[in-house]
Amino acid sequence: MKTPQVIDDLNLFDKILENTSKESKLFVSRSLAIANQILVLLDKKGLKQKDLANMLNKKEAEISRWLTGFHNFTVKSIAKIEAALGEQIIYTAQESQEEVSKAVHALTIKTPVFERANNPMQTKDFVSAGSMRATTSLYVLQRKTNKEKFSEEVIYIETAS
């Protein structure tokens, strides 16, 4: 079996993109991200597009239009879909940060075997369970086994409280 030859140079592709407005590129990026998030949620729940259409009293063709990737969603439409699916589709930057903090807190509560050293910049630092300091640092957590050997590593970001 053989594989195709590769064309390495495609400078015109990059040149055209550079000359495209930031707004257009962001619109494509955001609308595709939302469409795909909905598709992921439908897959996760074992639902088809027609199921979502029925939940929202819409025609399947309209749902297909939303999910092609260039649809200009309104906040109201997103809210309706979130309500129907029982899942959040978009997060603001602030909401994302809060979700990360919650996850980190849950992680440290559930894993008391982690310990934190004094210097947060070293890669083999540990975090004390329940002791969330008011700093923003990057830590690598390592799980201590009974024999002081480390079997897992998790990277997390601790945010200001």
């Binding site: 040149k15 495209t20 407005s21 257009s24 595709l32 598709l39 092609t68 260039f70």
Partner: peptide
């Protein structure tokens, strides 16, 4: 590239190609 009236549209198509390639995969819906 030589059609200025369609420059933004062309840019959107190329951005679409890039986004699908980098992040989402070529789903049939797209």
């Amino acid at each position: 590239e030589g059609c200025p009236d369609y420059a933004e549209q062309l840019g959107e198509i190329l951005q679409f190609i890039k986004e699908i390639g980098e992040k989402h995969g070529a789903r049939e819906a797209h």
